[in-house]
Amino acid sequence: LDEHKLVAQNRPMTDRIWMNIAPTLEKIMEGIKAQRILRERDEMRRKRLIVLDDVLREFGYTQPRGYIAPPAVDLAPMAPFKAIILDVPVDQGAIREHFNDVLPNLPSICDQFRAEQKRRLIQLVRAEYGQDADEDHLHLATSIFRCSQCSKTLIYPETLDHECCTYPGWLSTTPWFRWGGGLVLDKTRSSLMTSLLDCCGLDPKTTTFESLQELNPLVECQTCKTDDYGRVFIRWPELVCFMLYSYLICHFTD
């Protein structure tokens, strides 16, 4: 501010000069103060988010094997956490004790969040399987999703924790993110999976990824075979990566 043209003058500062420039300088100072408050608030939000992340990680350690606690950025927009992260005065810092009153309700809050995620995924598969589709359809081998933001191919339940489905912009002025907006059902790969299951004599309407892991079918890629290297056979675990992340033009036989 001391370098502002109204302040950095060669002539001495008099009461009259000050009276003339004071309103302008006060507006400038108010703007600087507002920016400082926003910076402090955003920094405190980030610190509290880190504390919440630690709380959720510790909660996950107490759950059965395989349980994945929702990320902090997913739960932060929910009412009890949002009030703590946004409304607690900045001068009270970022401490674990802020979340003590919420901890007893954490299991039900996490269940509620997961249920909402599943509901949105079910809405996606209903476009393919009809309005009677339910959670069981998420486990079908033909239920393959794609992230429209990063183009990554996903299957359930890894869709629940895909990094593009959380958005940290809420820490500043960005509106609260609505989960799952970037996921779509990958009809191309779903169709290919249907063909693969038909080759193996399996019913696409009932076959799940879990059952395929147990069956571990052996398939032959008709496209990749060459005179030099011969025929190409693939077992199920490798076939998943081969199909989901590589070639869509390949044709398979059992």
Rank of each mutant, 00 (worst) to 15 (best):
Ala76Lys: 05
Val184Thr: 12
Ala8Val: 11
Leu6Phe: 07
Thr142Leu: 03
Phe113Glu: 12
Gly60Met: 05
Met243Ser: 08
Thr153Asp: 01
Glu158Tyr: 05
Ile109Tyr: 02
Tyr229Val: 11
Val73Lys: 01
Gln9Glu: 11
Pro104Phe: 05
Ala79Pro: 10
Ile84Lys: 08
Arg231Ile: 15
Phe233Trp: 04
Pro237Trp: 07
Leu121Ile: 04
Phe99Glu: 04
Glu128Asn: 03
Arg39Met: 12
Arg114Gly: 08
Asp198Asn: 15
Thr223Trp: 04
Ser148Leu: 06
Thr24Ser: 12
Leu183Ser: 06
Ala79Lys: 13
Pro77Val: 04
Thr194Gln: 12
Met44His: 00
Pro104Lys: 13
Arg39Lys: 10
Thr253Trp: 03
Asp198Lys: 15
Pro23Phe: 14
Asp186Met: 13
Ser195Gln: 14
Pro12Ser: 10
Ile95Tyr: 00
Glu58Tyr: 02
Tyr167Cys: 12
Glu97Arg: 12
Leu49Lys: 05
Gly93Ser: 05
Asn100Ala: 15
Pro77Cys: 06
Glu43His: 11
Phe99Pro: 04
Ala115Gln: 14
Cys147Trp: 01
Arg41Glu: 06
Glu238Trp: 01
Phe59Tyr: 13
Trp179Glu: 02
His251Pro: 02
Arg231Lys: 15
Leu197Tyr: 01
Ser148Glu: 04
Arg120Phe: 08
Met13Leu: 15
Pro64Lys: 09
Glu43Leu: 14
Leu183Thr: 14
Arg235Asp: 09
Phe81Ser: 03
Phe113Ala: 07
Leu25Ser: 02
Ser246Asp: 10
Pro71Thr: 03
Asp42Ile: 08
Pro70Leu: 04
Arg41Thr: 13
Ile85Gly: 09
Val240Gln: 07
Lys82Ser: 11
Glu58Cys: 11
Leu244Lys: 08
Ile85Phe: 02
Leu38Tyr: 01
Gly180Gln: 05
Ser143Gly: 02
Glu214Asn: 12
Leu202Tyr: 03
Ser195Lys: 15
Pro104Val: 04
Asp91Leu: 08
Leu160Ser: 09
Thr166Asp: 01
Tyr245Met: 09
Ile68Leu: 05
Thr226Phe: 06
Ser195Pro: 01
Thr166Ile: 13
Val73Phe: 03
Leu49Asn: 09
Phe99Ala: 06
Pro80Asn: 02
Lys225Thr: 10
Arg178Pro: 02
Arg189Val: 05
Ile144Ser: 10
Lys187Val: 15
Gly66Glu: 03
Pro175Trp: 03
Glu210Ile: 14
Met19Arg: 10
Ser151Thr: 09
Gly31Ile: 08
Leu197Val: 07
Ser172Ala: 14
Asp54Asn: 11
Val51Tyr: 00
Asp101Leu: 15
Ile95Trp: 00
His139Cys: 11
Leu140His: 07
Leu185Lys: 07
Val240Tyr: 00
Ile17Lys: 01
Ala72Trp: 06
Ser151Asn: 13
Ala94Asn: 04
Ala127Ile: 10
Gly66Val: 00
Glu58Thr: 09
Ala76Leu: 05
Val102Pro: 06
His98Glu: 07
Trp179Asn: 13
Leu192Pro: 02
Gln35Asp: 12
Met243Arg: 12
Cys164Arg: 04
Ile85Lys: 09
Cys221Ile: 11
Val219Pro: 03
Pro70Glu: 03
Leu196Tyr: 08
Arg119Pro: 02
Leu138Phe: 04
Ile122Tyr: 08
Gly31Met: 11
Val90Ser: 09
Arg120Gln: 15
Leu185Glu: 00
Gln149Cys: 03
Leu183Lys: 07
Glu116Asn: 14
Gln63Trp: 00
Met13Tyr: 02
Ser211Ile: 13
Ile37Leu: 12
Lys27Val: 13
Tyr229Trp: 08
